[in-house]
Each structure stands twice: as structure tokens, then as C-alpha cells.
Design a protein around this nucleic acid. Sequence first.
DNA 1: GCATAAGGAATGAACGTTCATTCTGTGACG
DNA 2: CGTCACAGAATGAACGTTCATTCCTTATGC
Lengths: 197, 197
Amino acid sequence: MPNIDKRSEIVRAARELIAENGFHGAPMSMIAAHANVGAGTIYRYFENKDVLITELYKDLEERMYPVILKGYASDRPIRERFLHLGTALLRHFIESPLDFRYLEQFHNSPYGTEFRRDKILGKMEGCDVFRDLFEDGISRQVVKELPLVILFDLAFGPILAVARDHILGFVMLDELLITRTIEACWDGIKRQAPGTL
Amino acid sequence: MPNIDKRSEIVRAARELIAENGFHGAPMSMIAAHANVGAGTIYRYFENKDVLITELYKDLEERMYPVILKGYASDRPIRERFLHLGTALLRHFIESPLDFRYLEQFHNSPYGTEFRRDKILGKMEGCDVFRDLFEDGISRQVVKELPLVILFDLAFGPILAVARDHILGFVMLDELLITRTIEACWDGIKRQAPGTL
DNA sequence: GCATAAGGAATGAACGTTCATTCTGTGACG
DNA sequence: CGTCACAGAATGAACGTTCATTCCTTATGC
């Protein structure tokens, strides 16, 4: 029977190495070595490198949702809900730099583009919370009337950029700065009060 | 004497292939083939692949500045200046998808991180226009008092994300949507009028 | 002792780079 | 004007490496 310990050692090693060195800086042989496993053993658990990479990403996404949904109350005002999700997400990225780096590697690769295409064309399953939030916001005239995709970009573009800069050491985010950044994202998304130039 | 035609054929082929397939999807042999040139010929013009890649990026950046600075008047109000630069940048990305894709490839690679580190630690030479604009905005209390890096992320994060989504066909940006997107970026950056929740 | 897991050397494809050779255009010379 | 010699531009087969993957051997548990 396949040994569950081996599998998780492979997963751990792969995640660490890929997050730090990118897909091309993490050969299977190196992953095997860091997992204290023979090179061939990996192929007992994952059909090939592509499958390993994609599987790792799915794991990551599934571990992410509970974190940001913890304490989320969908009956609160739009703004409050957005701030909750945004800060939770940014905080999570900062606390799990390995996950974040892996996520970035994945997004900026052919795998990621394919994934995203499926998501957007397939009605964005998985992003339900955010989609609901934005659609709710639009219908209540609290959020700008823009295509969903653009609202996503306005919200996640800065969050990802800020997280990256924190992890690379270009800024040092504390709790205050996190809040102020997400509030700024909200300002970008929300309908501006009329009369204010 | 080296043939200038050959050189520019190599540059064109490299830009196209790398923009479309990424650094690892554009082997030197393929670049040579698309440039109708022998594999060794590239090395008469560029020391190695790294040099080729970096040179291409510098070209790209230098071609970009005149475009977004055209018609820029640094004596206009902060908001107007930001909208000018932002829309010009987004428009340029959309009109030159090849350049944009190359820029993304470069940014999301070790080359790009190194480049960015140098820029940020080295006082951001080259981003002078934006830095001046943000600093000016802060001192006039028109822009939020946040670290420069975060202001950059709030502005460029969405612009890059939106440009990518347009090029991948996830949204179809027209002139109106471009303006509204950049206005939304400005809303994120500007100090909000007090009293507006 | 048999079935299955694990190991890691072997394999072959792909890559960046080199280099011995070929090609080309130019200037000297008769 | 025709021929020849030469410089240096161009070539692409060949090389050394690296990598994902395979496959035969060894170890382990039942």
C-alpha cells in the first residue's frame, strides 16, 4: 500500500522548492532528494510533474478558503464584508509566504492561465463569495457598475502586488497598513459619493 | 561589419516568441529559425540568452516612456495628471500586446525581481514621473499618506491585471472602460472626502 | 514466498553554447 | 576588366548538461 508519509514528504518538498525557485528551479531529482525519496518514487504518487504541480495548487486553494471565510457574515454591509475578505486574504498571504509564492508561480505560468480561463468561462466557481459580494454591491448601488472581471482586478491586483512587495522586503506591512491598503482597494471599487471630484 | 538587418530580425523573432511562449518556450534554436538565421549567428550580436532578454526589455522600456509622456503637462492638477498617465499606459499595453506580454514575462522572472529591487533601493530612477506625482499628491494632501511602494501597487496592480485580462480576451476594453478603470484606480489612491463612509 | 513499495542508475529528449567550416563582398593586382 | 586573396559574417552540426521519465533491482510487509 502507498505510504502516506512519503506522499506528504513529496508534497512538502515540492511546495517548498517550487515556491522558492520556481518550476524550472525545482527538478524532480531535487524534489526527490529533499523528500528523502527515490526519484522514481514520486511517480508512484503523481503521474508526472504537471499533475504534481496542479494537485499542489488545488490543495493550496482548498486550504485558503476556510481561512478567509472564518468569521465571515454574509448579512453584514457590503463594505464590511469586503474589508473582512480583503484583510483576511492579505494577512493569509503574508503569514504563508510559501503558499503565496507558489500561487504566484502558478498564476504566471501556462497552467495558471488555463485555470483562470476555465474559471472565468465556467462562471467562476470557487470565487463565489467574491462574485456574490460584488453582484450584491452592484445591485445595491454601493459598488461601481463595472464588469465583474474588472472589479476583481481592482481588488486583487493591489492585494497581490502588496503581498509580493512585503514578501520581497520592499515594504513592511503591519496590521494598520494592511487595513489601510484594503480600505484603499475598497475606495477603488465603491461608487463615489456624487459631488466629490 | 555586422548586418543590422540580421540583428533586428533576431530581436523581432525573440520578442515575438518570448512574448507568446515565455522564456522557456523560446529556445535559441527556435529564435534562430524564426529569424531565418543560423543558431550561432545570434551569438555574434548577443553574448548569451540572458543578455538578449535583458537588452530586449531595456528597448521596450525606452520605447514606452515617450508614449505615456506625450501631452503630459506637469503643471496640471494631480488627478488630471494621474488620469493622463494611467490611461496612456493602459492604452499602450492594449495596443502593443506583444510588448505587454514580454513585460509580464520579464517581471515574473528572476530578471524582473532583480530589476525591481535595484529600482526600489536605487530611489526608483526611471519611475520619476510617477514618483513625483505621488509625492506631490501627498504633500498637497490630495493623495493618501501611504508608502510610495503601496501607492504604486494600488495604481499599477489593477492596470496590469486589466491589461492582461483584455489581452487574454476575458474583457473587451473600449475607451470608456479604460477611463472608468483608471478613474477607479484614482479613487483608490486619492484621499477620500471626510464624512463619506 | 509472494506481492507490492521504493530506490536510483539508465535513458533519451531538449537545451544553450561553441567552433570548424563555408560563404560573401571588397580591394589589390596584372 | 578579370582574377585572386583575404577578412569577417554566417552557418549548423556537435558537445556537454540538465531534466523528466522509465525500468530493472532491491527491500518490506503479510
